[in-house]
C-alpha cells in the first residue's frame, strides 16, 4: 500500500514537472503527455524500473476506462451541438479508419519483409 503511494507521489511529481515545462516553454502539449514523456526519458536514463512505479501505474492504467467515462457521457448531452454534422462525421471516421488501416498494414508488411530496401537511398 505504501509502495503504491510512493509510486503515486512520483507520478504526480512528474505531472507537476510536465505542467511546469508546458507553462514555461508555452508548449502545445497537455501536462499529462509532457509528464509521460519526461518519465519515459528519466526511465531510459536510469535503465531501471522501481517497484513503486509499477505498483502505482498498473492500477491507474487499469482504471483508464473509468476515468474517461465522464467525458464519454457528454456526447449524449451535447449531441444537438453537432446536429447536421453526423453524416460527415460518420463517413470521415469509417472511411478514414479503413484507409489508414490499409496504409499501415501495407507499409509495415513491405518494410518488415524487405528490410534492406531503402527507397530514399
Amino acid at each position: 500500500m505504501l509502495s503504491i503511494l510512493r509510486g503515486f507521489l512520483i507520478l504526480t511529481a512528474f505531472l507537476m514537472l510536465g505542467d511546469i515545462t508546458v507553462e514555461l516553454f508555452a508548449l502545445p502539449l497537455s501536462s499529462g503527455v509532457a509528464g509521460m514523456l519526461l518519465l519515459t526519458f528519466w526511465l531510459l536514463l536510469r535503465r531501471r524500473l522501481s517497484h513503486d512505479l509499477t505498483a502505482a501505474s498498473q492500477p491507474l492504467i487499469g482504471m483508464l476506462a473509468l476515468l474517461i467515462m465522464p467525458g464519454v457521457v457528454g456526447i449524449f448531452f451535447q449531441a444537438d451541438e453537432f446536429s447536421g454534422q453526423w453524416l460527415a462525421i460518420f463517413i470521415a471516421l469509417i472511411l478514414g479508419t479503413l484507409l489508414s488501416s490499409l496504409t499501415t498494414l501495407w507499409l509495415m508488411q513491405h518494410l518488415v519483409s524487405t528490410p534492406r530496401e531503402r527507397p530514399h537511398e
Binding site: F8, L11, T12, F14, L15, G18, S30, S31, G32, V33, G35, M36, L37, L38, L39, T40, L43, L44, L49, L53, T54, A56, S57, L60, I61, M63, L64, L67, I68
Partner: peptide, 13 residues
C-alpha cells in the same frame, strides 16, 4: 487522468 497519463510512460519504457 493526469497521473494516469503519466503512468503510460511505464509500459512505453
Amino acid at each position: 487522468l493526469g497521473p494516469a497519463t503519466v503512468a503510460l510512460g511505464v509500459p512505453l519504457y
